[in-house]
Design a protein around this nucleic acid. Structure first.
Lengths: 139, 139
DNA sequence: GGTTGACCTGGAGTGGGCTCCAGGTTGCAT
DNA sequence: ATGCAACCTGGAGCCCACTCCAGGTCAACC
């Protein structure tokens, strides 16, 4: 039984394929409480409902953008707690958003310098003049 | 003696202030061979030459963009080895560049979704309609 | 010449995030 | 009913990148 035809819930293996995360990691996340009370089938196996999968997609993005697991758990809890805590949820997300935006800017700047380095090496390789815009020394 | 007036070399403490890295981390990097043969003063203290500082700036960018320490060491070695290995240097940098570009794209996509989530929560808070463009479920 | 502060070493410890057992069910398919 | 694949648990182990000792040296200033 891969998919519950009625509810659309899937097994952990399927969830793994969908999300790209190893099964072990999904279990780890579950242990850490990221999914709250994940439903189980008669045999005790986890059933990832469409809701859980949707949540997982968001959690994954939070993780990928560098939010620590503990904070992701907090966020997931807010979500589960429902509407009256939306303020906390929003605040958490907003704060994170700022961090990510800064990381992004830093990453872009670093990438630019790396690209410039590549161009410089390439030029030297070809015996041409190095490109302009030095950021520091030329190694 | 903070700066050697003749060579422009600085102490580890100064290098730490310049780079923003803790002294401990600089020593760790040195142990890992990122700087190769770092010059020492009469008393055995590390002297960060302008060259070393310039290199450090690049290494730092590589680290920030997610290159593992071991690979950074490899790169630094190429640099030290001089011109005849420039091809390896270039290849390593190019490969890394691709990875970073992909990370960047992923980060941008994730940030977009997070922003959309924020907007959705905000709208719900205000009692307005949620914004368009759903990526998955609405939690 | 004694105190102070910045430096040194080798090595142990830490934290986050998985990742991997061992040993045990479950349930479809022969 | 026997095999097999996919699931389960509790707990140990691992990797990376630091981070933190303890105990010592060195140079400059009072």
């Amino acid at each position: 039984m891969i998919q519950d035809e009625l509810t659309g819930a899937v097994t952990i293996g399927e969830a793994s394929r969908i999300s790209g995360l190893p099964i072990e990691t999904l279990r780890y996340y579950d242990r850490e409480g990221l999914f709250g009370e994940l439903p189980r089938d008669a045999g005790g196996r986890r059933r990832f409902t469409p809701d859980a999968l949707g949540l997982l997609d968001v959690l994954l993005r939070l993780r990928r953008t560098g939010m620590p697991v503990e904070q992701v758990r907090e966020f997931a809890e807010y979500v589960r707690a429902g509407d009256h805590l939306r303020a906390g949820r929003l605040a958490l997300l907003r704060a994170h958003r700022e961090r990510v935006a800064m990381d992004l800017a830093q990453l872009q700047a670093d990438l630019e310098v790396i690209d410039w380095k590549i161009a410089a090496y390439q030029a030297a390789e070809d015996g041409n003049d190095p490109p302009p815009r030095d950021s520091m020394t030329t190694n």
